[in-house]
């Protein structure tokens, strides 16, 4: 059917239906993401949570970084299984 072959045999109606459903689903998701992105340009008003351009240079009086410990994960390459 439609010249599509799977494993050398023509695709069955069920195969075509499955492919169509998959294509429609993926198409819907991508199409919605595209039009939502296009519509996002309509919004230009946002609350601000910072005042960066009014800030001066920071003056640090204390700045510490204390090492508190470590652990190591080991993952087998072939199985991707964590030890």
């Amino acid at each position: 059917m439609l010249g599509i072959t799977i494993d050398g045999a023509p695709a069955t109606g069920a195969d075509i239906l499955l492919m169509a459903v998959l294509a429609l689903g993926l198409g819907a998701i991508c199409a919605f993401a595209i039009v939502k992105a296009l519509a996002a340009g309509l919004t230009s008003v946002h609350n601000r949570t910072e005042a960066q351009e009014y800030a001066g240079e920071p003056q640090f009086s204390e700045s510490t970084e204390v090492y508190t410990g470590q652990r190591t994960e080991r993952i087998r390459k072939s199985s991707s299984k964590k030890d």
Partner: peptide, 27 residues
């Protein structure tokens, strides 16, 4: 890092502290 059989992820933990001041003008 990794060797022939394994991939290793080393996690190091730190307590970081910052104390200081920032001036703001005409917000």
């Amino acid at each position: 890092y990794e060797d022939s059989d394994y991939r290793y992820i080393e996690h190091k933990y730190y307590d970081v502290f910052r104390k200081g001041r920032v001036g703001f003008e005409d917000v």
